[in-house]
């Protein structure tokens, strides 16, 4: 088993990369408007379609998927619990609350401002979650995700209440259910900031891995545990908030992808981070393509598709090895 696992490691990453490349091409040619392969270069309108809509949409799905998977991984590292992710532990809901408040109080704010304020709100919400999660007994690993669900639910309810009072309920669904159909050139570029966060996470990968050993082991190895917690919180908050602002909540990516990669490759983040990012991109882009095909020429939002696909994968993970908490 041991040698097989070692050999398997780089392979998982390569497979994810290859599948991603195939999906990338597929995504450029999937949509309402027919776009035969040969017409892309010969026809000016074809190039225009690709550059303005299909390419930005594809890149947005890749960026969102990769960064959300990494955000989930870091969230699990910070909470020292495999069953939390930003969309089920109050981070995404706090970001929604942030955007909603900006929209109410400062309707003219641009995307960057909204993104920043949503990130700040997510940071506060996630810090509160972690402060409580660290007080829960480590012998009860399911308390943390349960608390996260309740906590996220309470904030989500507050968001709905405020939106209802302000007659913004319809507007709200833009953020609560992820959808790439509105992504055009000039409307998704902030997601590159999420990619930047992924690169940053890769630089501190060793420290993050040591943090999974716990506070005492981290301090014993000379790591500034508090500072790393704060850094991790910023990464998680910025990634989640930006993807909520640009495309809306995409559930389960941060939960299932890191868990699957951990099973296959272990938890040494220096080695697994690229595979987690690539697999997250594959999952989200794949679900988006699926959503475009299911009832062509109409679309099913990626948030809905992911809710089904991600939920099934998660159940499979839970039932396959229930003892492996």
């Amino acid at each position: 088993m041991s040698t097989a696992a070692v050999k398997q490691s780089p392979l998982t990453g390569w497979i994810a990369g290859l599948v991603l490349a195939i999906l990338f091409v597929l995504s450029l040619f999937t949509g309402v408007d027919e776009l035969p392969f040969g017409r892309v270069l010969s026809d000016g309108r074809g190039i225009e379609l690709v550059l303005v809509s299909r390419l930005p949409r594809t890149l947005a799905a890749i960026l969102a998927g990769a960064s959300l998977a990494i955000a989930g991984l870091i969230m699990q590292t910070l909470a020292r619990n495999r069953y939390v992710e930003p969309s089920t532990a109050g981070t995404a809901q706090s970001a929604e609350l942030g955007i909603l408040l900006v929209t109410l109080l400062w309707p003219a704010a641009n995307l960057l401002t909204k993104g920043l304020i949503a990130s700040a709100a997510a940071l506060i919400g996630t810090s509160l979650f972690l402060a409580t999660a660290h007080r829960l007994p480590p012998t009860q690993p399911f308390l943390v995700p349960l608390f996260g669900l309740v906590y996220g639910g309470v904030i989500g309810a507050a968001v709905t209440f405020v939106a209802w009072q302000a007659d913004l309920l319809q507007y709200l669904s833009i953020w609560t259910n992820g959808d790439f159909s509105g992504v055009l050139r000039g409307r998704y570029e902030l997601l590159w900031l999420g990619a930047l966060m992924v690169v940053f996470a890769w630089f501190i990968a060793d420290r993050l891995t040591i943090m999974t050993l716990g506070r005492d082991a981290s301090i014993g190895l000379g790591i500034d545990y508090r500072r790393m917690l704060q850094l991790g919180l910023v990464i998680v908050s910025v990634i989640s908030a930006l993807s909520v602002v640009i495309v809306g909540v995409i559930p389960f990516v941060g939960l299932v992808v890191p868990n699957i990669v951990s099973r296959l490759m272990g938890d040494n983040l220096r080695g697994t981070l690229p595979a987690v990012a690539a697999s997250g991109a594959v999952l989200v882009l794949g679900c988006d393509i699926l959503g475009r095909l299911i009832r062509h020429p109409y679309e099913v939002p990626v948030g809905t598709v992911m809710g089904c696909v991600g939920g099934l994968i998660f159940l499979w993970l839970l039932f396959r090895r229930p003892s492996d908490v």
Partner: peptide, 19 residues
């Protein structure tokens, strides 16, 4: 000390060299 992470023995021992 509880090691909840899936690390290989060599990786775990290797992290002691971080300082």
């Amino acid at each position: 000390s509880i090691v909840a992470s899936r690390l290989r023995v060599r990786e775990l021992v290797g992290f002691s060299r971080f300082p």
